[in-house]
Each structure stands twice: as C-alpha cells, then as structure tokens.
Write a protein that binds this DNA or RNA. Sequence first.
DNA 1: CGGCATCCCTGGGGATACTG
DNA 2: CAGTATCCCCAGGGATGCCG
Lengths: 123, 123
Amino acid sequence: MTTPPQHDPAACIRVSEVLGRVGDKWSIQVVSALGKGPHRFNELRRAIDGISQRMLTLTLRGLERDGLIGRKVTPSIPPRVDYWLTDLGQSLLVPVQALGDWALTHRTSVDQARNAYDRMVDE
Amino acid sequence: MTTPPQHDPAACIRVSEVLGRVGDKWSIQVVSALGKGPHRFNELRRAIDGISQRMLTLTLRGLERDGLIGRKVTPSIPPRVDYWLTDLGQSLLVPVQALGDWALTHRTSVDQARNAYDRMVDE
DNA sequence: CGGCATCCCTGGGGATACTG
DNA sequence: CAGTATCCCCAGGGATGCCG
C-alpha cells in the first residue's frame, strides 16, 4: 500500500467543489477532447459520443466561465467558433489523467468485486 | 505548461466510468473520511456534513459492491457496523487527493475567471 | 444503532424546433 | 454552423416513519 493520505475536511470540501464542477456527465470528456488541441463546435459534437447540442453548449459555457477553456468567434458565413484549453484547463488534465489511469489499472478488480458481490446477494 | 496529455478515446471512456462511480455527490467524501481509518455508521454520518441516512447507506453499499470498502457487522445490542477502506479503496485515494490538490491550488484562479465572466455578461 | 420502505419534489438532461 | 428556446421525463436524493 502507498501512504494513506490523511483526512482533511477542508481538502474534502475542495474535492467536492471540483467534482461538482468537472464531475458532471460531460465536462471531463470535453476537456479531454480539447487536450488534443483546439476544436470547432461540431468537431467536439462528433468527437464526444452521445452528447446533445444543448449539453455541449451548456458544458462549454460552464468551462469557459471557470476559465478552463477559451472561445473565439469568427463571424464569417457560415459562422465559426473555436474552443481550446487554457493553461488552467491543461493543468486540470493532469489529475484527470491520473484518475483515468486508476480506472484503467483497477477496472478488472472493480468488476470482479462487483460480480462477487452480486453473486453473494444471489439475484 | 506541462506536457499536454493526448486524447485517448478509450481512456476517456474509462474516466467517465470512474466518475460515474465516484463522481456522485457523496462517494468521494465517504472514501476520504474512511482514509483516516475505520468508522462506524453514525461516525461517518457525523463526519460528513449534510449527508442523509439514506444516501450514506446507498453510498456505502455502492462502494462495498465495487470493492472499495469493507463492512463488518457485529450483532451486539445495540448492533455495531464498521466500515474501512480496502487496499483498492486506498489506491483510489491517491488520484482523488491529486484532484483535491488541484482544487486547492487553482481555486482562486477559477473564482477570478468566474467573477470576470459574470461581470462581462453584465448581470 | 443501523438500517429499509415510502413519499415526493427538484433539476439534469434528452428531443425537437426555430434563428442569425 | 452554432447556437437559443421549449417541452418533457425520470433518476437523484431529501424527509419521514417503521423494524431487528
């Protein structure tokens, strides 16, 4: 086992705030997609499987408000809007990646535990 | 800027799964609280501000099912139930802590961006 | 003490249609 | 193309009450 981090109530609250911000259904995926580089609106729409236009818009607005992504409107015809990660957004990608790595590493363990649990309670 | 992690669709999906599992309103706080050591049901209830009995029960069941926490019933009178982090749960604490650190570090940046955004759209 | 069971209500989010 | 607006549904989750 690694050193168990101690419980810090203040840190807990911060974690909750972060999760409230990026823990919604789509934010992480948008940030991750923008990790590749700038994207236009419909490029993101295609890159993120299952997201609706409405939710993409709302998610992008939220991330922009929090300073995680930038937005540039080019008023051509047809209009063009580009999104990209700010430095702040890039920095968030690091711990997010760590969480993804955890998921990749321990996925089978979780699945096994889940199956064992489900068998135990019959079903 | 640090090296920007590349976008990996498979990794993205995994991140989503992890967030679906621990990104709910209470799981992280329960895991963090148990990072201190084993707790009884009502100890957790008191440690986690605002959680209802119902949600604590549901959250604990979910975490137990996923193998992140252990549960031991002592059928005394009154009954006693202890919860603790499994090794798997401990390992999750690491990336979660990283996310918490990010929140602590960048909290003011996010708040400033948010305030600036809100001023910009008037309100 | 440590739960289920039940009721109920809010809001997250999909589908669809319209606009600049 | 890139939104905004509207309708609508249902799952998350609080409050309350009962049980071993």
